[in-house]
């Protein structure tokens, strides 16, 4: 079974992101870049499917700058078999839909049985990519999955998607798109052997023309990034616990009207 895992390189979760000189983007100096955490669940799940079935191929894909190759190498070190790097001036300033179109095109070429995404990239937090790619391919999709089992014949998957208050278990014919929610698995660390072996694996460069795509204008335009409005200064309520609690409840009721 061939499984394709689109991933994205994002700033580490502990990063204090700052607005850049161009206020439409962030200041990238000093940032530690990582594979978006949800994407790691997707890579892990793909590797587990391959290991469980005893055969198959896991292909990691990303669209991004030269630096994004690091993220692909991390996936190769975890155990992905090869990687595709989509990089082209046509995709500079790409919005979600442009990226979705590029991914859908590369998926058509690769023709995997399963596409596994992370539920969202933790930079723009749009969370739209899995569903958009599925739509462009005309495939079924289940987002935020917490469990999955591929049928023995490899023709369908039983996947549990997290919804409010429940887990909806769907039977879905392959090919399909799934997106991983935290809790699906615990991603492995790459091993040193995996890291040393990653450089022997292929990272293929893919241009827009290779996919028969031309530049398309972004549909969603970023006007500017803004810092959060500061919260009004708070106060620490002094005193013995019993008194402090009384005063807190009074304030919540009378001043804040929060209860």
């Amino acid at each position: 079974m061939k499984i394709l895992v689109p991933i994205k390189q994002v700033p580490d979760t502990a990063t204090q992101v700052k607005i850049g000189a161009d206020p439409k983007g962030i200041d990238t100096t000093g940032i530690t870049w990582i594979v978006s955490p949800y994407d790691e669940y997707a890579v892990e799940e793909a590797l587990r499917i391959k290991e469980k079935r005893g055969q198959g191929e896991v292909v990691a894909v990303t669209l991004g700058s030269e630096r994004a190759k690091e993220a692909l190498r991390s996936c190769l070190a975890m155990g992905a078999d090869r990687a595709l790097h989509l990089s082209d001036p046509a995709w500079e300033n790409a919005d979600t839909l442009t990226v979705a179109r590029a991914l859908a095109a590369v998926i058509k070429q690769e023709a995997p049985q399963l596409v596994l995404f992370g539920r969202q990239a933790i930079d723009d937090d749009m969370g739209a990519m899995p569903a958009q790619v599925a739509e462009l391919l005309g495939w079924p999709c289940a987002s935020w999955i917490m469990e999955e089992t591929i049928s023995d014949d490899g023709k369908s998957v039983r996947a549990g998607r997290q919804v409010e208050g429940a887990l909806d278990i769907f039977n879905i014919p392959l090919p399909c798109v799934l997106s991983a929610q935290k809790g699906l698995n615990e991603p492995r660390y790459p091993t040193l052997k995996g890291i040393m072996g990653a450089k022997k694996k292929e990272i293929k460069d893919v241009k827009a023309a290779d996919l028969g795509l031309a530049a398309d204008g972004a549909q969603l335009l970023v006007v500017a990034l803004e810092a959060l409005p500061p919260r009004p200064p708070g106060r620490v309520i002094p005193g013995e616990p019993a008194e402090a609690v009384k005063e807190l409840v009074r304030s919540l009721r009378e001043d804040a009207k929060a209860i």
């Binding site: 190498r73 991390s74 070190a77 660390y189 790459p190 890291i195 450089k199």
Partner: peptide, 12 residues
Amino acid sequence: DEQQMIQALARD
């Protein structure tokens, strides 16, 4: 690249 990845792995 490999040394950096090994460093990152060990840190993690």
